[in-house]
Design a protein around this nucleic acid. Structure first.
Length: 191
DNA sequence: AGTTTGATTGGCT
DNA sequence: GCCAATCAAACTC
């Protein structure tokens, strides 16, 4: 993917990422569900209070990968947006397995063999299946220099739906903003 | 310095 | 439906 396509408002970029391919090593998935986090003005964003050790890669140029540890247990992957210095990102919530399914199943060892919809149907699952962890935080998805990249094969989802983001605390003022986007025809969307 | 919360998942009641 | 796992940040003394 080209960098300038990603260097804008995460709310506008997020639906454009549906149908794109995230590849890590020999494993790849087509993105079917995302959420936009706008940065400083978004009270649900990790960058709402400025830079911290965890969120520093959100301040990298568009196209960087932002990986963080969620609940101290799972990893979540984001595509950084906006130009360098302006925080904002799109959370990759779910994908359809395209390549390396055997490797995915090995990493997602609790999943029954042949159960394709359990491999990548959630942000933590997607990272586990693709082998994405904190080592890849800050990797450039445009150049793919660290063997993770975003690819565009021209596929466009037949339909896109939007709604409130998932898992936000009750006190977040932005909890009802419709910044989650998904392909309603995909069986790989998170529940 | 100690406590609570959170962009989740899987297992158990 | 409820709960534990487990760590960084934000809160509250």
């Amino acid at each position: 993917m080209e960098r300038d396509v990603l260097a804008g408002d995460p709310v506008e970029i997020a639906p454009l990422l549906l149908g794109k391919i995230l590849r890590s090593g020999a494993v790849a998935a087509r993105i079917v569900e995302v959420e936009a986090y706008r940065g400083a003005g978004d009270d649900a964003s990790h960058a709402r209070n400025g830079p911290t050790r965890r969120n520093s890669s959100m301040y990298a140029p568009a196209g960087a990968l932002y990986v963080y540890l969620c609940y101290g247990v799972h990893h979540c992957a984001n595509v950084v947006c906006w130009p360098k210095g302006v925080p904002g990102a799109v959370l990759l919530r779910a994908g359809e397995p395209l390549a390396g399914m055997a490797e995915m199943a090995t990493r997602r060892r609790r999943v029954a063999p042949g159960d394709m919809t359990e491999l990548c149907s959630g942000p933590g699952k997607l990272c586990e299946a693709l082998g994405i962890d904190l080592d890849l935080d800050g990797a450039d998805l445009v150049t793919g220099a660290r063997d993770v990249e975003l690819l565009d094969d021209g596929f466009v989802p037949g339909s896109v739906r939007s709604g409130p983001r998932i898992g936000l605390g009750d006190r977040r003022a932005s909890r009802s903003e419709p910044w989650r986007f998904w392909d309603p025809t995909s069986p790989h969307v998170s529940r």
